[in-house]
């Protein structure tokens, strides 16, 4: 029984991280219909900045803030420089461009901080089955996700973001600055992605540290439905806890296979994810 509780708690904190990174993918997908493969690299660069700032100032929280701010800015820059010119270019172009950006940023990180691992701090004491740090991770994700949902639902900015996502042409007609909204969407998503990175990176940071997390985050987003932020969060938590059981009860080497099995099982029944809208045909 204790094993069961322990595995659930362990899965909850890793699931929260999948959910957060998945959420950042969903925000971008809703806004620009792009799956952002560079998301782990954007989060990586923010985490490395946090590492350097924390090392220089001795304050975890300065590093934390610097990472979120820098991550957001990075998202804005990427949207303006790379994604905007590709808005009519189709799904594959965006995948390849963001993939290129992933390789570039990981290489740059390796050049600056080397490919060797460095210690990367937790926010709070990490000791305990469900430590203050784990609690913080779950709370931070809940707060960020709620914030994003409220923003979408109840603010004028959120309304404009949704309008842009729903139909850019109509949004433009009613006076929404569509371009600006896309940039805001990317910034917002990259900020949430940076948060996920900060939570996922510890204890060690190296250029490929977030690759595995990204794969599971994308799996979570697909599980939950790429259109649906709430679905993605549920998807992330389900996946995190499920994989924790597999790892603890059946063996760690089965985790990637289990992720595949879960995904195939869900998509076989619901091709647009657990909570995704059945895609209307886009003409």
């Amino acid at each position: 029984m204790t094993t069961f509780v322990n595995l659930t708690l362990g899965g909850l904190s890793s699931g929260a991280v999948y959910a957060a990174l998945g959420l950042s993918l969903v925000i971008i997908y809703r806004a620009t219909r792009v799956v952002n493969f560079a998301q782990p690299a954007l989060a990586l660069i923010s985490s490395y900045l946090a590492y350097s700032v924390t090392k220089g100032t001795g304050s975890y929280w300065l590093g934390f803030v610097a990472a979120i701010v820098a991550g957001t800015l990075l998202g804005v820059v990427v949207e303006r420089l790379i994604i905007r010119p590709l808005r009519h270019a189709g799904e594959l172009s965006a995948i390849i461009a963001t993939l290129g950006l992933l390789l570039l940023l990981q290489a740059v990180a390796g050049m600056i901080w080397s490919n060797e691992p460095h210690a990367f701090a937790y926010a709070f004491d990490f000791r305990g089955r469900f430590s203050p740090s784990d609690l913080f991770a779950v709370l931070a994700v809940v707060v960020a996700a709620t914030g994003v949902l409220l923003l979408f639902k109840f603010t004028p900015l959120g309304l404009r973001l949704r309008a842009t996502a729903f139909n850019p042409e109509v949004a433009k007609l009613v006076g929404v600055r569509v371009g600006a909204m896309l940039t805001v969407g990317w910034g917002l998503a990259a900020g949430v992605g940076s948060l996920a990175g900060l939570l996922a990176t510890p204890p060690f940071i190296f250029p490929t540290v977030l690759d595995e997390v990204f794969v599971y985050a994308l799996t979570a987003a697909v599980l939950g439905g790429l259109d649906n932020p709430l679905g993605t969060i549920v998807g992330g938590l389900v996946l995190g806890i499920g994989l924790s059981y597999v790892s603890g009860l059946l063996g760690a080497e089965l985790v990637p296979l289990a992720a595949l099995a879960i995904l195939v099982a869900v998509l076989a029944v619901r091709p647009s994810g657990l909570f995704g809208r059945a895609t209307a045909r886009r003409v």
């Binding site: 799956v35 799904e91 995948i95 987003a221 080497e253 296979l257 992720a259 195939v264 998509l267 091709p271």
Partner: peptide, 23 residues
Amino acid sequence: LHGPYLAGATLALAVGLPAVTQR
């Protein structure tokens, strides 16, 4: 499956299948 769902599922395939060798 459409677009990104297919992409996500096939990526999971690329990650998951080689793990068979460990099993």
